[in-house]
């Protein structure tokens, strides 16, 4: 009886095991959108790390003689300035490359801060329930009901506009969504039999939360975190656009968008290309998030 149980699962596997290359290929096909997202993010990372080598000009280098030049492929454009120049003759392409540093730094750090605050509070709320849950949920509701821009503006106003303070402001305003998602997932999991089993095996609460519950909610957190990185990048742009974020002349996509607004009708590229940069990086990160979720989920992993 027992040997029968064992053999039925082993034999067909050995017969149909596909070659290594073939399995890799099917995996790549399945994850192609995620890989595209990863490539976009990789490009963004490369731009941020290698900005000094990739950018043909310095971000602050002004050439007043060639101000407001259109992109290279348009009449009047030159190959010297691939995406044209702004009102004081700075190379737009170089500034966008340098701007990726700000966007990535803010996006990643702010979300790390959000996840740390949000997930810990969510775990506590979902696992302990009762008054812990009531007070944390109340806080979350207040935070979510409060207009983000007002909160972030007042925080930046108090702390002063700097890269570090923008990260803090975005981190302190963005965590409630992580708490919400974590809390619901924990509520769902905490009464599942494998968590009861862990309790009956006399594991500590810390072990149950970190080894048994957390790994099961990580995919949701990861997917949410990637979406939130994109959102933090957009929010940084928004704050910079409003003049509360990165201060000129430091190149930030949002600030560039704000500067480009004045030229929108005639020199559209000044607003369009920083906007496109924001859009592409947000899209890439979102695609990567979906891909990662598929990769991490053991139910989809068939190797």
């Amino acid at each position: 009886m027992q040997t029968g149980v064992l053999e039925t699962t082993r034999q067909p596997r050995a017969l149909t095991r596909p070659s290594r290359i073939r399995r890799l290929w099917t995996k790549i096909c399945r994850l192609r959108m995620g890989i595209l997202g990863g490539l976009i993010l990789l490009g963004l990372l490369a731009a941020a790390l290698l900005a000094n080598w990739l950018a043909p000009h310095g971000p602050f280098e002004q050439d007043i003689m060639s101000r407001l030049q259109p992109p290279a492929w348009m009449p009047g454009g030159s190959s010297e300035h691939l995406l044209g120049t702004d009102g004081v003759g700075r190379d737009l392409f170089s500034r966008i490359i340098h701007g990726s540093r700000i966007s990535l730094a803010v996006g990643l750090s702010a979300v790390i801060l959000q996840v740390l605050i949000g997930v810990i509070l969510g775990l506590a709320a979902g696992y302990y329930r009762g008054w812990v849950d009531s007070s944390i949920s109340f806080m979350v509701n207040v935070m979510l009901g409060f207009p983000f821009i007002l909160l972030a503006m007042s925080l930046v106003a108090v702390l002063g506009p700097s890269l570090q303070n923008i990260i803090i402001a975005l981190g302190l305003t963005g965590w409630p969504i992580f708490t919400r998602v974590t809390r619901v997932e924990v509520l769902k999991l905490r009464d599942m039999e494998f968590v009861l089993a862990a309790r009956s095996l006399a594991f500590s609460t810390l072990r149950i939360m970190s080894k048994h519950i957390l790994p099961n909610i990580l995919p949701s957190i990861l997917v949410l975190a990637t979406v939130e990185v994109a959102r933090a990048i957009i929010r940084e742009s928004l704050l910079s656009f409003l003049g509360l974020g990165i201060q000129p002349p430091t190149p930030s996509w949002g600030a560039m968008l704000a500067e480009g607004r004045d030229y929108m009708l005639m020199q559209w590229w000044l607003a369009a290309f920083p906007g496109l940069a924001i859009f592409l990086s947000a899209l890439g990160i979102n695609l990567l998030g979906d891909g990662l979720r598929d990769l991490i989920d053991p139910h989809l992993r068939k190797d």
Partner: peptide
């Protein structure tokens, strides 16, 4: 100790069998 009803919900989907069975022994 307890043996649970649902053989699907009672095993942590993110753990390998050696962890499921061996964790208590180790801890």
């Amino acid at each position: 100790q307890m043996v649970f009803q649902d053989p699907y919900a009672s095993l942590n989907p993110r753990m390998r069998v050696r962890e499921i069975v061996g964790e208590a022994i180790r801890v």
